[in-house]
């Protein structure tokens, strides 16, 4: 599709056994757009973005990433994942590899990049997240905030077109949340398409082009930050805002 749409979810439904976790989701994210998805826990936010890179399989509807619909076709999910990066709540760094090796692993083995080139690329991203001096350290030797930044660099070293964030700061101690959010703001300023599941409303207000509010598996409200915070349409949105902006 040539309408500059990075991610499109059309009528997506998913069940966990009998629990209807995603109800008729319709969402379109344009290229270079930044969308923040928020909502109470259990609303299906994580499941939604994990459907975009195939970590969860949707059961009904269509998930289209950069014009490619995600189907059962062999090799397709891997192709999508080459262009979609993901950052996890629990960082999920590979503990047996150094920070640099964490970043170079995929380019070397998936894009068949020669080691030197991969290392240069990885170092450039480690510099971008402001921790080049930690390149030869193991994840166990890094703080939570540093680990998450390495995780961001790892995702970026594959040079994706879209970045997915699944509650990237929820597992961090308060004093480290700031450094990670700053990194994410810088990333947004480079024009990366970002989908971020997060509770950090300050970040949403500053960076997001749109905020989508999910509750009980549905996207209840999808609006610009201006409208979302000042003029929420749905009662449930108002309730949620009332609770978290206390």
């Amino acid at each position: 599709m040539t309408n500059g749409c990075a991610v499109e979810l059309i009528g997506v439904n998913k069940w966990f056994k009998t629990f209807h976790v995603l109800r008729d989701i319709n969402l379109a994210v344009a290229s270079r757009e930044r969308v923040v998805i928020c909502g109470p826990s259990g609303s299906g936010k994580s499941t939604l973005i994990r459907c975009i890179n195939g970590l969860e399989r949707h059961e009904q509807g269509k998930v289209i990433v950069e014009g490619q619909e995600l189907t059962e076709e062999v090799g397709q999910v891997e192709a999508v994942r080459r262009n979609v990066g993901m950052v996890f709540q629990q960082f999920n760094l590979f503990p047996h590899l150094t920070a640099l090796e964490n970043c170079t692993l995929a380019p070397m083995w998936v894009r068949r990049m020669p080691k030197k080139q991969a290392e240069e690329l990885a170092m450039s991203f480690l510099e971008r997240v402001h921790i080049p001096e930690q390149a030869s350290k193991y994840p166990g030797q890094l703080s939570g905030g540093q680990q998450q930044r390495v995780a961001i660099a790892r995702a970026l070293t594959m040079e994706p077109h879209i970045m997915l964030f699944d509650e990237p700061t929820s597992a961090l101690d308060p004093e480290m949340i700031k450094e990670v959010l700053e990194t994410m703001v810088e990333l947004a300023e480079t024009g990366m398409t970002m989908l971020v599941v997060s509770h950090e409303m300050g970040f949403a207000r500053t960076v997001a082009d749109r905020i989508a509010f999910m509750d009980h598996g549905e996207i209840v409200e999808d609006a610009t930050p201006q409208e979302f915070f000042n003029n929420p349409k749905s009662e449930r949105t108002k309730e949620f805002l009332g609770q978290i902006l206390r």
Binding site: R81, M86, F94
Partner: peptide, 30 residues
């Protein structure tokens, strides 16, 4: 081994066998 390890390896584009050989098995065998 944490389930997240396999997810992270998959998310970064590694297929099943590469993810096993480069990420999961080294940790599990150790």
């Amino acid at each position: 081994i944490d389930k997240g390890q396999f997810e992270a390896a998959s998310a970064v584009g590694l297929g099943y066998w590469r993810a096993m050989g480069l990420v999961i098995l080294p940790q599990a065998l150790r």
